[in-house]
């Protein structure tokens, strides 16, 4: 399972960078999204995959029942998703404004039009 997820994360990085190198605004943003999701998948995989319960102590128990899933990578991924979501939404707004201001989608055109 680790192998599959590692390959998937690698594929996301690869496609993400490929899309960014396409030099078009829309694809650049898709690339950024893929890249951040690849990172999230990588954190999740690197944190260790377990088929286990949530790390919450049951109401009547004194300590955590094993096996339990490590909550830290999940918290990290969650935070990263939230931040990634906000930043991606912002870059969409920004790209939209760039498009309105320049009327172009190609990054080279945007630059040369200055």
């Amino acid at each position: 399972m680790e192998l599959i997820l590692a390959i998937a994360a690698g594929a996301l990085y690869g496609t993400g960078f490929y899309m960014m190198l396409r030099r078009r605004l829309g694809q650049l943003i898709v690339g950024l999204g893929l890249l951040s999701n690849g990172t999230n998948l990588l954190i999740f995989t690197a944190g260790g995959l377990t088929r286990a319960r949530a790390p919450i102590i049951a109401g009547d128990a004194q300590e955590l029942a094993r096996p339990y899933a490590d909550p830290v990578p999940q918290a990290l991924v969650l935070t990263a998703i939230v931040i990634g979501f906000g930043v991606l939404a912002f870059s969409l707004v920004l790209a939209h404004r760039v498009h309105i201001a320049t009327g172009a989608d190609d990054i080279e055109e945007i630059e040369s039009g200055q």
Partner: peptide, 8 residues
Amino acid sequence: TALGLLYG
């Protein structure tokens, strides 16, 4: 990415 690897 570095953080994920480091934690792993």
